[in-house]
Design a binder for these strands. Structure first.
Length: 412
DNA sequence: TGTCCACAGGAAATACGGGGGT
DNA sequence: ACCCCCGTATTTCCTGTGGACA
């Protein structure tokens, strides 16, 4: 009896302190297409990305006169809404075309993770239902043929949205050549290509003959400013969180910090989400200080997540470096390599050559785990000076994580 | 000024693993 | 089942190098 009361009390307080009401709205991945569009609609209704949408409209307007719009290039850093805005726009365009009885279809090729040319074409073919999913073994030509075959009888507008084009590894040239020169010549469909990229110069390295065929209109997405971010965040708060548990100023702070450092909407929402999670776990309101802590946490998680998804060899390299550099102040490649080999021995991993090890070190340097500066000691040789400038807690955490990964999955 | 250390980092060769064709 | 092809990971081999030292 008494226990019942107690439990009820506890549940009551928990409910009262609940912050996250619907966590799906804190992570777009968990929303389905329609829900995403709904959220977008609300955001765009607040005049966010208004100019971009206007530009897009005017770019595609010729379609309604039976004209053929030229290709389009979108530029903007990650998280500035290129993908989201374009998808939203295409969706609208699609339904508008439906109303006006204009034949139109669009395809979104998502390259957020880099893929070789082959896979991209395969994806395209799959969307068109022109081929099954291959991993390897079929020639590019054959794939292209299948796609052409499928498109031969299509008459209407055909929009291909290539998201993050510069991520086509190996042979971006032949991929573009196919899209720009070969595909338009098959059948009578009106092909419109939309490219997005966060590199301004992605066109620089492509074959000039193809480049000249890419008569592109360009559209720039500016990073979100604090004002826009506030609108976006407040919408998320409305959808996902218990507004009573969020102190005044938190929203503004997150928006300000985010716009100052990156202007990335996804990261801003992530920060909000992280703050809420911490607050809920500790049963307190979301305060300004909590936002700072969430910021730290995100930073740490980044490293941990990255090392977790890295190959064993890279993990071993990092472990050896962390372990060694806590003992001595300056660490050189040779010593690091020796330490790495002993560690490999311990976890039954076949050690790499020094040459390959050196590449691992460079990679870790690139990712920001360590710093490796080339330094010459005169007749005592030239080597990299390796140092770590992560906070101790982070490197300790990394060590733990790596050990766990290795001990649980011994190789060889 | 020449030597020589202890590597860096480029190029080419080789190993590997997964998948299709037959 | 066997062979071939392709893309990627490593190895092998190699040339290059800043500067302390004699």
């Amino acid at each position: 009896m008494q226990a019942n009361v107690k439990i009820e009390e506890q549940i009551q307080t928990l409910l009262k302190n609940t912050i996250i009401l619907d966590r799906r709205y804190l992570d777009d991945e968990q929303l389905d297409r329609n829900e995403q569009f709904k959220v977008l609609e609300e955001i765009f209704a607040l005049d966010v990305r208004d100019t971009e949408i206007r530009d897009l409209s005017s770019h595609f307007a010729p379609m309604f006169r039976g004209d053929h719009p030229v290709h389009l290039s979108l530029y903007g850093k990650t998280g500035t809404g290129k993908t989201v805005t374009m998808l939203y726009f295409l969706n609208m365009l699609h339904s508008l075309c439906g109303k006006k009885k204009i034949d139109m279809m669009y395809i979104h090729l998502d390259l957020s993770t880099p893929k070789p040319c082959f896979r991209v074409l395969n994806d395209l073919a799959c969307y068109l239902d022109a081929s099954k999913r291959y991993k390897k073994g079929i020639s590019l030509d054959e794939l292209m043929g299948k796609i052409e075959e499928k498109m031969k009888n299509y008459q209407g507008y055909f929009i291909i949205f290539v998201d993050e084009v510069d991520h086509v590894r190996r042979d971006l040239d032949s991929f573009l050549k196919f899209l720009v020169k070969r595909l338009p010549q098959t059948g009578s469909s009106k092909l419109v290509l939309v490219f997005s990229s966060n590199k301004l110069n992605w066109q620089e390295n492509i074959d000039p003959r193809i480049k000249s065929f890419l008569k592109v209109n360009e559209l720039f997405f500016k990073p979100y400013n604090a004002h826009d971010l506030q609108k976006i965040l407040s919408l998320r708060i409305k959808k996902a969180l218990n507004a009573k548990m969020i102190e005044i100023g938190v929203l503004e702070k997150i928006a300000a910090v985010s716009s100052r450092t990156h202007g990335d909407a996804r990261k801003a929402v992530e920060l909000l989400s992280k703050s809420a999670i911490i607050a809920e776990r500790e049963g307190i309101k979301v305060t300004m200080e909590l936002v700072d802590r969430a910021l730290d946490d995100i930073e740490k998680d980044k490293y941990v997540a990255m090392i977790k998804s890295s190959p064993k060899q890279l993990q071993a390299t990092l472990y050896a470096i962390i372990a060694l550099s806590s003992k001595s102040k300056t660490l050189y490649t040779g010593d690091a390599y020796v330490g790495y080999k002993t560690f490999c021995d311990r976890i039954h991993l076949r050690p790499l050559t020094q040459r390959a090890f050196s590449d691992m070190v460079s990679e870790l340097d690139m990712y920001g785990f360590i710093q490796a500066r080339l330094h010459s000691h005169g007749r005592y040789g030239r080597t990299k000076e390796i140092s770590i400038n992560l906070p101790h807690e982070v490197s300790d955490k990394l060590k733990q994580v790596i050990l766990m990964e290795c001990d649980l999955n011994p190789v060889y």
